[in-house]
């Protein structure tokens, strides 16, 4: 029951974020970029459901418009990290020779670079944009996936069924794809949902530093930082983006958990 519940709640939350971002593409209650000096810092009301910010911009409109960049950054950053990091981790875990060692060392080196440093590098080369943030956060997250994948692979490799596959003459690539990857998939899934949350927060931080999304494009992270200055007098500025971020992060976490339980036949048996 609990498993089903987390899947449903997660799917609903993620679905909500998806829907809001889709609707935000074509329609928002007000223009999310138009400054209206007379409407500064209004409290939530019938005309402005979530109130307005320091520039008189409707907060609900900004939340809706910001959902898109949250999804873009989260999905692409985690996608880059997982697609590069997991294969590297599998190589590092399955190969105990020089190749595996090189991958582990290279991962350690990459781990030394924080996302901010990479973002400065990319911003210099590509200019500051959402793409810069995606690349920087994605690349900085690669070592996380490499390490978690390697740890999982080492554990799977010590089991007899891998030896059995080798006795059957199954090649490395096929063992990796058919036997190792499915067995570490739950680990990767959980890591992905956690990393997704971190990516959203990192994007907010990078936007604040002016290295990611430019100020005129609304993002939840940027709204949160803008709200800081008015936190004492107008806390409603911070509440909307904070709830949105928390909801999205929670949604992806629950969905990740639920999907893992749904896809793992061992757990499915227990649940039924």
């Amino acid at each position: 029951m609990m498993r089903r519940a987390s899947l449903v709640v997660g799917a609903v939350l993620v679905g909500l974020v998806l829907m809001v971002s889709l609707v935000g593409l074509v329609w928002t209650p007000y223009d999310p970029a138009r400054v209206v000096p007379g409407d500064r810092l209004l409290s939530p009301s019938a005309t402005h459901w979530l109130g307005t910010d320091a520039f008189g911009i409707d907060i609900l409109s900004r939340i809706m418009a910001g959902a898109r960049s949250v999804l873009l950054v989260g999905v692409f950053a985690v996608g880059i990290a997982a697609l590069v990091g997991v294969p590297l981790g599998i190589v590092a875990g399955m190969n105990s020779g020089w190749l595996g060692r090189v991958v582990v060392r290279a991962t350690d080196v990459l781990y030394a670079f924080p996302a901010v440093l990479l973002a400065i590098l990319f911003a210099g080369a590509l200019g500051s944009s959402t793409t810069t943030a995606m690349l920087a956060i994605g690349i900085a997250t690669i070592p996380v996936f490499t390490r978690i994948a390697r740890a999982g692979v080492l554990q799977v490799m010590s089991q007899d069924f891998i030896t059995a596959s080798r006795v059957s003459g199954i090649g490395w690539l096929r063992i990796a794809w058919r036997h190792v990857l499915p067995n570490i998939a739950p680990l990767i899934g959980v890591q992905a949902s956690v990393s997704f949350a971190l990516a959203i927060l990192a994007e907010a931080a990078l936007s604040y530093l002016g290295l990611a999304t430019p100020p005129e494009v609304p993002t939840w992270g940027r709204m949160l930082y803008d709200a800081q200055r008015h936190l004492l007098n107008d806390p409603h500025l911070a509440i909307a983006p904070a709830v949105a971020i928390a909801g999205a992060v929670l949604g992806f976490n629950l969905l990740g958990d639920g999907l893992r339980d749904l896809l793992d036949p061992r757990l499915k048996e227990v649940a039924e």
């Binding site: 089991q159 007899d160 069924f161 030896t163 059995a164 596959s165 058919r178 036997h179 499915p182 067995n183 793992d264 036949p265 061992r266």
Partner: peptide, 8 residues
Amino acid sequence: MTALDPLM
């Protein structure tokens, strides 16, 4: 127990 892949 361990000589068969639990997911296949």
